[in-house]
Amino acid sequence: MSQPIAAPHRPSIIVDGVRKRFTINHALSLKDTVVAWIRRRTLTSDFEALKGVDIVVDEGESVAILGLNGSGKSTLLKLISGVMAPDGGEVLTRGRVAGLIEVGAGFHPELSGRENVFLNAAILGMSRSEIEARYDEIVAFSEIEEFIDQEVKHYSSGMFMRLAFSVAIHIAVDVLLVDEILSVGDAPFREKCRLKFEELIAARKTLLIVSHDLDMVRELCVRGVVLSKGEVVYDGPIEGAVRLVES
Results as ranks from 00 to 15, higher is better:
5 I>R: 12
237 P>A: 06
134 R>Q: 10
11 P>V: 05
159 M>N: 02
83 V>W: 15
222 V>A: 15
14 I>T: 09
51 K>T: 00
106 G>H: 07
126 M>Q: 08
200 L>H: 02
22 F>K: 02
85 A>H: 13
61 E>L: 10
3 Q>L: 04
17 G>L: 01
69 N>F: 02
43 L>Q: 05
53 V>L: 06
167 V>R: 13
49 A>H: 07
54 D>A: 08
223 R>E: 13
114 R>T: 07
152 V>S: 00
24 I>P: 08
51 K>Q: 09
57 V>Q: 02
222 V>Y: 12
188 P>N: 06
198 E>G: 14
232 V>N: 11
168 A>Q: 02
233 V>M: 10
9 H>Y: 11
231 E>H: 12
27 A>F: 07
144 I>G: 14
27 A>G: 03
190 R>A: 14
140 A>M: 09
141 F>G: 05
48 E>C: 03
35 V>L: 10
216 M>A: 14
78 K>M: 09
247 S>Y: 14
212 H>Q: 01
113 G>I: 06
187 A>E: 13
109 P>M: 08
26 H>Y: 03
220 L>V: 11
51 K>Y: 02
97 V>D: 06
223 R>C: 01
152 V>R: 02
2 S>C: 12
60 G>V: 02
17 G>E: 11
70 G>P: 13
80 I>T: 07
209 I>Y: 04
226 V>I: 11
225 V>H: 06
52 G>V: 08
227 L>E: 08
156 S>R: 04
43 L>D: 01
27 A>I: 10
175 V>I: 03
13 I>V: 04
231 E>V: 12
164 A>V: 00
20 K>S: 11
104 G>K: 01
56 V>Q: 13
159 M>E: 06
199 E>A: 05
24 I>H: 12
181 I>L: 10
146 E>Y: 08
143 E>H: 03
98 A>F: 05
198 E>M: 03
39 R>V: 13
58 D>M: 14
162 R>Y: 08
178 V>R: 01
148 I>D: 08
15 V>P: 07
242 V>A: 09
129 S>F: 10
193 C>Q: 08
2 S>V: 08
99 G>P: 04
181 I>N: 09
109 P>L: 09
97 V>R: 09
117 V>Q: 06
150 Q>P: 03
32 D>K: 15
100 L>Q: 06
64 A>H: 03
119 L>D: 06
209 I>C: 00
233 V>T: 13
16 D>H: 08
200 L>V: 09
206 T>N: 05
99 G>C: 08
214 L>Q: 02
156 S>C: 03
59 E>T: 08
18 V>K: 00
131 I>T: 05
49 A>F: 05
77 L>C: 00
85 A>F: 12
103 V>A: 08
161 M>S: 14
138 I>L: 07
18 V>F: 06
87 D>Y: 03
28 L>T: 11
73 K>T: 03
1 M>E: 15
15 V>C: 01
12 S>P: 06
68 L>A: 14
128 R>F: 12
54 D>F: 10
77 L>P: 05
105 A>Q: 00
10 R>Y: 12
179 D>W: 00
50 L>I: 07
236 G>A: 13
85 A>G: 13
218 R>W: 13
246 E>V: 09
126 M>G: 01
53 V>A: 10
55 I>Y: 04
175 V>Y: 07
173 V>Y: 07
225 V>Y: 01
54 D>Y: 13
